[in-house]
Design a binder for these strands. Structure first.
Lengths: 175, 175
DNA sequence: GGGATTAGGAACCAAATAGTACAAAACAAA
DNA sequence: TTTGTTTTGTACTATTTGGTTCCTAATCCC
């Protein structure tokens, strides 16, 4: 079951919801139609489950990496978000879901917002841990700015292959 | 012809490429199948033409607005990018195209990159005009950062309706 | 080991898809 | 008006779409 969900996450992440037809989805999940429709209502519910899987696997790991970062420099810790380990043309599943489906599907919008909020919270914790003298409202604002940079990076990264020096930029941003 | 292209731009912008079927596209363009396939090779070529239309109509206007801004404060000028006039759930067509199609369609990736570069250039001109004492490499970097914030804003805005105070953030960013 | 319940797989279906063919109609020029 | 051309609308098609059915095979529990 977990491998099936991971397969669904993988293919939806890479190709989007509309870009993935049922045969591709079934192949990625290692299921046939019979067992698929026994486990899920329809394609949409599989997509929502794939988003949950992303939350458990990828967002958990990212949040954890940020929380465990013991580097004294906040910018170095946050640069983990930008030095993507993997194919940049996949982008970020949260960002993909927001752009493709959020306006038409409130459930997708909710889940995506919740995951984005988790990322923002993790960024904020890095800031408050490493830079305790920041005024708290300002820190939250800065975390949201960095979240926006992250989403922009993921979106633009799907088309552009040039890579930017985000560590230097974050250093600048955090003075 | 121009109204047809504007209709195509509108519907592809709002619904994406895969999310728009031919009847919807024809309705938006005010054409029937016969005349559509006489004017365009296929759905994809209409999408590419719609991207060009976005370049001519929307990007031109945005670049012009930035170039004509005579407010002494750079942040105020740049905040034009973020105070979207219109439905935020449409987002930005460039961002939508990058996320949905750029990994699979080099022509889309090229066009999207070129339009993004135009925006970045316009941002850079605002910076160099209003803050001439910025070191030039740093200004270009800052323009790219603001471009990334813009794309992040457009992506997140499709799911989140809370609105942020970008003027204040830009002021902070530009010291 | 045997009966009940669940999972797996292939054929099937109706609806929707992008694209084509061709006739009707509007238009141009003479 | 008549002719020739281009544009427009409609009927059609082959394919693909997501989803269902039903039968077989495995698994589980007593």
């Amino acid at each position: 079951m977990d491998t099936a969900l991971s397969g669904a996450m993988d293919v939806f992440w890479r190709q989007g919801y509309q870009g993935t037809n049922l045969p591709e989805l079934l192949g990625a999940m290692g299921l046939t139609r019979g067992s698929f429709y026994k486990a899920f209502d329809d394609k949409e519910s599989a997509y929502l489950a794939a988003l949950d899987q992303y939350d458990r696997i990828i967002v958990d790991k990212t949040v954890d990496n940020l929380a465990r970062c013991r580097d004294p420099d906040a910018a170095t810790c946050l640069s983990l978000l930008f030095e993507g380990s993997g194919d940049p043309t996949r982008g970020c599943f949260i960002c993909n879901a927001m752009v493709e489906l959020a306006p038409f599907n409130p459930q997708v919008a909710d889940k995506a917002n919740q995951m984005a909020a988790r990322l923002q919270q993790a960024i904020l914790q890095v800031l408050t841990r490493h830079k305790p003298d920041l005024e708290s409202g300002h820190a939250a604002d800065l975390a949201d700015v960095i979240l926006h940079l992250y989403f922009g990076h993921q979106a633009i990264g799907k088309a552009r292959n040039r890579k930017e020096d985000w560590l230097a930029r974050l250093r600048e941003l955090l003075n």
